[in-house]
């Protein structure tokens, strides 16, 4: 067995093609970025070694700190909004109701659509003058709450998180649903005989058994939220006045609009470290269900 499965040449045959491509086109750029983050450079004539100067500058940069906070807000917001909602829908569909396949297909649909289209549509929904949201509020008698949603610096970030939720709840639902479908139905039959309620079945059977998937899901949500770029760029470009700036939009702006490439690289490095930290953290949180 070990002779076949431990054969160095076979292993190389399977792993090397992917590893080489990955090393050249992903790892090398990462290394290059880390290196560049130590310079004050526009990648043209200016190239001045500043050590950790860029990182120190970032700590003092109010906009970056704000963007950082927005990302954390996004991570927490996505975790507490995505997961329970996705779980609610998954659990609802899982219980063999009519139209389950239909709901499942439709809910996944938004995650299939490109960011430009989603952003455009929701910009019109949030519009202050003829936006659907304001019209709806007026209809249900909450006209006093009407406003120019994306121009409100306190609400804009929240509005964007709602759209992200809209787009990806179905995606996470499908992942969780998949896990639920994989649970041995004998558990539920036994519970049925014991007369356990739907809620009891969920807390005692479903939830514990899908925990490993929730870990994966959490990792996807966290890394996704930290790297997030698309909708912010399309809907607000980080505005009004940096209110919805996130690290990736700020990094893009620094690199391509004002040519502070070293500074932008430092943002990229911080982003990567944050991702790793949060993955490690979620591994720890879900540890007991691992082994």
């Amino acid at each position: 067995m070990n002779k076949v499965m431990g054969n160095k040449r076979s292993i190389a045959f399977f792993v090397l093609p992917a590893l080489i491509i990955y090393a050249v086109f992903a790892l090398f750029p990462i290394a290059y970025n880390i290196y560049m983050s130590l310079f004050n450079t526009d990648l043209m004539a200016k190239k001045q070694f500043v050590g950790l100067g860029n990182y120190i500058g970032l700590l003092k940069d109010g906009t970056f700190v704000h963007a950082f906070r927005n990302n954390i807000f996004m991570v927490i917001g996505s975790l507490i909004a995505h997961m329970p909602l996705a779980m609610f829908f998954a659990n609802a569909i899982f219980k063999k109701i009519k139209g389950a396949a239909f709901f499942q297909t439709v809910f996944f649909l938004p995650s299939v659509i490109c960011g430009v289209a989603v952003g455009l549509t929701w910009t019109f929904i949030y519009n202050g003058n003829y936006g659907l949201l304001n019209a709806f509020l007026k209809m249900i008698g909450l006209g006093s709450l009407q406003q120019v949603w994306l121009a409100n610096k306190k609400l804009a970030m929240f509005c964007i998180i709602v759209v992200i939720m809209w787009q990806y709840v179905g995606y996470h639902m499908v992942i969780q649903l998949a896990a639920m479908r994989n649970i041995d139905s004998a558990y539920y039959e036994a519970a049925q005989i014991d007369g356990a309620s739907g809620w009891k079945q969920f807390t005692n059977i479903t939830f514990p058994l899908i925990k490993p998937i929730l870990k994966i899901d959490a990792v996807l949500i966290i890394t996704g939220s930290l790297k997030y770029y698309d909708l912010v760029a399309v809907m607000t470009s980080g505005g009004p006045n940096h209110a919805t700036e996130v690290m990736s939009t700020y990094m893009y702006y620094q690199a391509f609009n004002i040519l502070k490439y070293g500074y932008a690289s430092a943002i990229g490095v911080i982003l990567m470290i944050l991702c790793m930290l949060s993955v490690a953290l979620s591994n720890r949180v879900f540890k007991e269900s691992d082994e």
Partner: peptide, 13 residues
């Protein structure tokens, strides 16, 4: 050369 460069950097990492 590019491949070697890439692998070099992997080592670096």
């Amino acid at each position: 050369e590019m491949l070697t460069a890439g692998i070099l950097c992997t080592g670096l990492l």
